[in-house]
Simulated scan of single mutants.
Amino acid sequence: MSAFTLLTLKTMSDTRGMLTVMDGILPFPIIRSFWIYGADGHKRGGHRHHETRQALVALSGSVVVSMDDGQTREDITLSSPDQCLLVEPKDWHEMTFGQNSILLVFASHGYDKDDYIHTPYERL
């Protein structure tokens, strides 16, 4: 069992393809959305927040998200567009991108450089 919340998004499938819906499932209103791509083999993130909550969805490819809430460290692989990882403000997160990956991010707040904490948790 993971210490972090991984949601399975409702997906409908038929002969015409698949449709995944994010409707009323997030525990916060979406104020900002952005996507990261062209980062093949690179790491992004490497921070936590004071207030911002996020939801991450790998639309294409796979992204390994290294999570640390100060108590638990865990690597979570997002490799299907019906998976959504919730990132709480306390969660240090760093993403490693596979080939041709696209990561969609929904955020509870707009961009504010003062909301970022660039110091990881210290371990004894």
Rank of each mutant, 00 (worst) to 15 (best):
W92G: 02
H42S: 13
T119G: 08
G45T: 04
S101W: 03
Q71R: 14
D114Q: 14
S79H: 15
D114M: 12
S79F: 09
M95A: 15
T119D: 05
P81Q: 06
D112H: 01
P81N: 12
M1S: 15
Y37W: 13
E94Q: 15
S2R: 15
A107P: 07
L103I: 05
S60K: 13
M22P: 08
G41S: 10
M22S: 08
S2F: 05
P29G: 07
E122C: 13
M12S: 10
I30H: 02
G70S: 04
D75P: 11
L9P: 03
A3T: 12
Q99G: 12
G98V: 02
R73N: 11
G24R: 00
L85P: 01
L59R: 08
D69V: 09
L56M: 14
E122K: 13
G17Y: 00
L78W: 07
W35T: 11
M95P: 12
H50S: 12
Q54Y: 01
H50Q: 13
T15A: 15
V63P: 06
Y121A: 02
D75S: 09
W35N: 13
T20D: 00
V65G: 06
G38Y: 07
L103R: 02
L26H: 01
A3R: 11
E94T: 08
L9A: 01
S101G: 04
F28D: 01
M95K: 12
L19C: 06
S66T: 05
G38A: 07
D75C: 07
